[in-house]
Amino acid sequence: MTRSAEINPRGAKPTRITAGRIGLYAFLISAALFFTVPLYVMIVTSLKTMPEIRAARIFALPDHLDFSAWKVAWAGACAGAECAGIRAGFLNSVLITLPSVVISVLFGAINGYALSFWRPRGGNLMFGLLMAGALVPYQVFLYPLVRGFAALGLYNSLIGIVIVHVLFGLPLVTLLFRNYFVTIPEELFKASRLDGAGFWRIFLEIMLPMSVPMLVVAAMMQFTGIWNDFLLGLVFAGRDNLPMTVQLNNIVNTTTGERLYNVNMAATILTALVPLAIYFFSGRWFVRGIAAGAVKG
C-alpha cells in the first residue's frame, strides 16, 4: 500500500482553500457574531450590579454573579403603577399562544390537504386571495378588525386575540402544508379513495401522520411569531391579557430615577427564553421538516 493510499484510502481529493470558501466562512462567522455578541452583552449585563454597569465596561465579565436583577425582572419590575414583573404577562402569552398555534396549524393542514388533493371548485382562486391577503401589512387591517370585533363583543378579550392570530397565521401555514402535500404521490390518495375512505379518514389516518415534520415546522414558526408579537397583542388583547412582549415594553419604558439596565436585560432574556428553548431542543425536527418539503411546490 502506498503512502498516498494510507493517507487518503478513498481517493478523495484534498480540500482546497479557495477565495469562495474563505468568503463563505467569513460570512458565516460574521453572521454568528452578529447574533451572539448582543446576546453575550445582554447576559453579562443582566448579571452585573449597577455600579459595574456604570463603569462602562460593556464586554467585561461581572466581578461576581448577581442574579438579583433576574428576580426583580421576574416578580418585581414596575410597569407603570404595577410592580409584578414580567411574570404578569407569562401566563397571558401561554394562553394566547398555545390555542392560536394549535388552531392555525390544524386549519392550515386541512386547507393544504384540500387544495392539494380534493381541489374544490374555485380552490385556486381562494388560495390566491389568501396569499394576496398575506402580503397586505397588518396595519391596514387593524381599524376594520377593531370595529368588527367591538361589534361582536370580542375586542379586548382572550378569544379575540386568539382569533386574530389564527386569521393572520392561516395564509403561511396553508402555503407550507400545500407545498408539502403536493410532494406526496397522488396514487396514495387515489388508492385510499378506491378503498372507500372519505375526506376526514384520509386526512386523519394517512395524511396527518405523514406530515409530522411539517407539523413541527408550522408549529415552531407560528409559536415564535405569536409569542414574539407586540402589535396585535397591544391592540386586541386588552389590559387583562397583555402578553410578555407588551409587559416588557412597559417595564423598559417605565423609569423612576435610575434606569436599571440589568433588570431590563434580564426581562428581555426571560421574554425570549421560551422560543429559544423550543428552537434549541427542536431544531433537528425543524430542519427535517424544511428538507421534507417546506420550500417545495
Rank of each mutant, 00 (worst) to 15 (best):
S4D: 13
S4Y: 05
P9T: 00
Y25A: 06
I29S: 08
A32R: 07
L33Q: 00
T36H: 07
T36V: 15
S46V: 07
T49L: 00
P51F: 07
A55Q: 06
A56C: 06
L65N: 08
A73V: 07
G76V: 02
G80F: 05
A88W: 00
N92G: 01
I96A: 04
I96N: 06
P99F: 07
V102S: 08
W118C: 08
R119E: 10
G123A: 14
N124G: 13
L125D: 02
L129D: 09
G133P: 06
L154M: 03
L154W: 04
V162Q: 02
H165S: 04
V173D: 10
V182A: 03
E187W: 07
K190Q: 14
F199Q: 04
R201L: 11
L204M: 09
M207W: 02
M210E: 09
V212F: 07
V217A: 01
A218E: 01
M220I: 14
F223A: 14
I226M: 07
D229T: 01
M244H: 01
T245N: 07
T245G: 13
L248D: 11
L248E: 12
N249Y: 14
G257D: 08
E258V: 13
A272F: 05
L273K: 13
Y279W: 11
F281E: 08
A292F: 07
K296C: 10
